[in-house]
Simulated assay, not measured.
Amino acid sequence: MAHHIGDFQTSSTWAAICNEPCYRVSQLFPDHFIPAAMLPQSPGVAPK
């Protein structure tokens, strides 16, 4: 995910961009895919 590139906003946007197709594919093919999500992470930002 390249957590070291950009700031929290960059990580948050990238996570949203990656999570959307994962969700869409899991809805199109529910018998073959289980949705998973990427959480945004950025140096200096607490995980909570």
Rank of each mutant, 00 (worst) to 15 (best):
V25I: 14
S12D: 10
N19E: 02
I17P: 02
G6Y: 01
V45H: 15
Q9M: 14
S42W: 00
P21W: 05
V45Y: 05
S12Y: 02
V45I: 13
G6Q: 11
Q27A: 13
A37T: 14
A36W: 00
Q27R: 14
Q27M: 12
L39A: 09
W14H: 08
H32G: 02
V25M: 07
P43G: 11
R24H: 09
N19D: 08
P43S: 10
A16T: 09
A37D: 15
S42P: 00
P47W: 13
Q27C: 14
A36V: 14
Q27I: 09
V45G: 05
E20A: 08
F8I: 08
I17T: 07
Y23Q: 10
D7Y: 01
S12N: 08
A36E: 08
R24D: 11
C18R: 08
S11Y: 00
V25E: 11
P35T: 08
G6E: 03
T10G: 04
A2I: 04
T10A: 15
S11W: 00
A2Q: 12
M1C: 09
F8G: 04
I17R: 12
A15S: 08
P30D: 11
L39Y: 11
L39G: 06
D31F: 13
P30C: 04
C18A: 15
G6D: 07
H4F: 12
F29R: 11
F29I: 13
D31K: 11
C22M: 09
H4A: 12
S42R: 02
F8R: 06
A2N: 11
L39F: 11
W14A: 04
S12H: 10
P35V: 03
Q9P: 05
M1T: 04
L28C: 13
V25S: 12
A15W: 00
M38D: 04
R24S: 15
H32R: 12
G44P: 01
V45S: 07
V25G: 03
K48I: 03
T13S: 06
A37M: 15
H32N: 06
A15R: 00
D7K: 11
V45W: 03
D7R: 10
Q27V: 10
W14Y: 07
T10P: 02
F33G: 01
M38Q: 02
V45L: 07
F33N: 00
P40M: 03
P40V: 01
G44C: 04
I5D: 15
P21E: 07
A2M: 15
D31Y: 05
P47C: 09
M1W: 01
P40Q: 03
P40E: 00
E20L: 09
A46C: 08
T10I: 13
T13M: 05
G44L: 14
C18P: 02
W14S: 09
A37G: 14
M1D: 09
Y23L: 12
C22W: 00
S26I: 01
Q41P: 02
